[in-house]
Design a protein around this nucleic acid. Structure first.
Length: 603
RNA sequence: GCUGGUGUAGCUCAAUGGUAGAGCAAUUGAUUUGUAAUCAAUAGGUUGCGGGUUCGAAUCCCAUCACCAGCUCCA
């Protein structure tokens, strides 16, 4: 959220907060006996949670509520504040027949709050800490519209009743609201689900099942280019590649403690019967780690081979809740840029530092900028859920925080966001709709070495336990490609573009030259295609541009007669004509260096 | 999984109880073009699937599946 949107003293915050009360009042007037939940400001406006009882609320009621709000605003009431001690406050909430407010008062009272404020505007009163604007007059020039309606669990717990949440957009001026709506519309144009279909990157078939992605030829090029790059990078950083099965006997996940702790996110087991009639259960893997641990422990290890880095683009299966699935962002079958690093504890800081360098190298290549680092630690609450000695935790948390600081990497702390086996550094991306998603983590794990009895012989001949680092800088292909599509708006850098070069003949006379050039480019491993359709020249250009192909070669008699090509780059007006050989040389350089040039970011 | 919404040709959408239609894409023919849509013809649909109401259903009702937004979850 912007600072203005969260700053309680800002006018915008008070405006949105007050407007939420007006909405609650409108709803209360229209629906007798409605129960009120919470109604805070948000990044773009505000929402309010209501319990409508048995009443069905659809989008058509939004217009009705909005109309009522405007009627209320015309009454020009003042916002007034009154304070009550706990008992009186409870009594007041009870008189108003607002059970959720009673619960809230009791909860806050338990946390030591003794004085409760109620705000009134006209006949409407609501428990609220404020602050608000002075009167309706301050709200009149504001721009707002009711946006959408959805369910939301009371107190955010799925064990509680689901209330009806009404979201509204609200800004100080009409221009700001309009500009937000336009921005949202532009963002929707970059939606990876939309572009993924248009650019034929992936498809999902009901026949195969939801959350199970079919990668089309274009998408497969992108996947494989990413994978090739990751393998080169990991080779340079001293990783060894391994390969493991997609299924395993139940025993492995019992040992790793995924069963039963993680069983809700796993596909149900397959039961097979051997010749002796003994039944055995197999599971699809939700993670690669346990397999890698067994590779580590397949023979005794010496300190000399640590840190041992085992990498695999491993395909995992998770039975995500159906409502969670979304395009490539959240799927049930995913291929992870996974690796596990088995590291002596005293080398942990060095190894993490090396990882941060690698992450930044990766993200620079992709030109990614819209991410933030989160240091996820235990926090003060629920200490019992975090396994291992507190001493070890303290040290690990300090190491992570020190590495981030020493590399001048800005980060924020996520209290209670650690994994149960250790703290982590999460890389958070914001998607187009402003929603934050974890794209990647670096996790320190003290727990698995114990479960899997992982050991090494130290320099002094002692048996020691390594610490494990789980890391996946490039996330899963699925999630990472969804971010890339949205970041690039579908216009990929040349090195990973499905079609890198489109050859467009001006007329049939140059056909032979074009055919030969295409052959030459393909021989140089360039993904080149020629357009020999009956379409007009203009139409051919339009087609190439709408497919967001990074380079078009315009070839007419002028070019063919001089062994040249005219280069038209995506999103760039200026063209240049150069010799065929110069073009191929430049192009190859750009591809080999994986340049993330301006051509990929049209204005 | 929960709340609300949506589902019509490959894609984007029209048809609100009375003969399912348009543009783009596809196919065929003509056209060979110098920087974002040449012209014409053809083909394409048990309106997501299954029930029901009705003389008659894309349209109304029930159920189911999928998708979208949000909630919850996300080792």
């Amino acid at each position: 959220m912007t600072s203005e949107a969260t700053d309680k003293s800002s006018f915008l915050y008070r405006l949105r907060h007050s407007m939420a009360h007006v909405m609650a009042q409108a709803v209360a007037e229209l629906y007798n006996g409605v129960k009120l939940g919470f109604g805070p400001p948000t990044e773009n406006g505000f929402y309010y949670d209501f319990d409508f009882g048995t009443e069905q609320i659809g989008p058509e009621t939004l217009a009705k509520i909005e109309k009522q709000m405007r009627k209320i605003l015309s009454q020009n009431e003042k916002f007034t504040r009154e304070e009550f001690k706990t008992e009186q406050a409870l009594q007041k909430a009870s008189q108003m027949n607002q059970p959720y407010k009673e619960i809230q008062i009791k909860k806050l009272s338990g946390e030591g709050v003794e004085l409760f404020s109620f705000y009134s505007n006209g006949k409407f009163t609501d428990l609220c800490e404020g602050p608000h604007v002075d009167s309706h007059k301050d709200l009149r020039s504001a721009a707002f519209c009711l946006d959408r309606i959805s369910g939301a669990y009371w107190l955010g717990s799925e064990k509680n009743k689901m209330l009806t949440r009404i979201y509204a957009l609200c800004y100080e001026t009409e221009e700001e609201l309009k500009s937000f709506l336009e921005q949202r519309k532009r963002a929707e144009e970059r939606d990876h689900k939309k572009l993924g279909k248009e650019l034929e990157i992936f498809t999902i078939s009901e026949t195969v099942g939801k959350g199970l992605v079919l990668w089309l030829p274009n998408g497969t090029v992108i996947r494989e280019e990413i994978e090739k790059y990751a393998k080169e990078m990991e080779f340079r950083y001293g990783y060894h590649r391994v390969a493991t099965p997609h299924i395993t006997r139940e025993e492995l996940f019992i040992r790793s403690q995924h069963l039963p702790a993680y069983s809700e996110s796993m596909f149900p087991p397959m039961t097979v019967e051997d010749e002796g009639g003994i039944k055995e259960r197999f599971y699809l893997k939700p993670m690669n780690c346990p397999f890698h641990h067994l590779i580590y422990s397949s023979r005794p290890r010496s300190y000399r081979e640590l840190p041992l880095r085992l990498a695999e683009y491993g395909t995992c299966y998770r039975f995500e809740q159906s409502g969670e699935l979304s395009g490539l962002l959240r799927v049930r079958c995913m291929t992870m840029n996974d690796a596990h690093i088995y590291c002596p504890e005293e080398k942990l800081d060095e190894e993490i530092a090396l990882l941060m360098t690698m992450y930044q190298e990766f993200y620079n290549t992709f030109g990614l900028k819209n991410y933030t680092y989160r240091l996820s630690i235990r926090g003060k609450a629920n200490r019992e859920k975090f396994k291992g000695s507190p001493d070890l935790w303290d040290r690990a948390e300090k190491i992570l925080s020190d590495v981030l600081s020493s590399k001048n990497i800005p980060f924020y702390v996520g209290e209670g966001e650690a994994a149960f086996y250790g703290p982590k550094i999460d890389i958070q991306f914001k998607n187009l709709m402003g929603r934050e998603e974890t794209v990647s983590t670096i996790q320190v794990d003290f727990f698995a070495p114990v479960n899997f009895n992982l050991e090494y012989v130290s320099q002094t001949g002692e048996i020691k336990q390594p610490v494990i680092i789980h890391r996946a800088p490039l996330s899963t292909h699925e999630r990472f490609v969804s971010f890339l599509i949205e970041t690039y708006g579908g216009a990929f850098p040349i090195w990973m573009a499905p079609v890198q070069v489109k050859l467009i003949p001006v007329s049939d006379e140059v056909k032979e030259y074009v055919i030969n050039l295409e052959k030459e480019l393909k021989t140089a491993s360039v993904r080149a295609e020629s357009d020999f359709t009956d379409n007009t020249f203009n139409k051919k250009i339009r087609t190439a541009v709408t497919h967001k192909i990074p380079v078009c070669l315009i070839i007419g008699n002028k070019e063919a007669s001089q062994n040249r090509v005219t280069v038209r780059r995506y999103g760039i007006k200026e063209q240049e004509t150069l010799t065929k050989d110069d073009f191929v040389k430049q192009l190859k350089e750009e591809i080999t260096e994986r340049r993330c040039g301006i051509s990929s970011f049209p204005a």
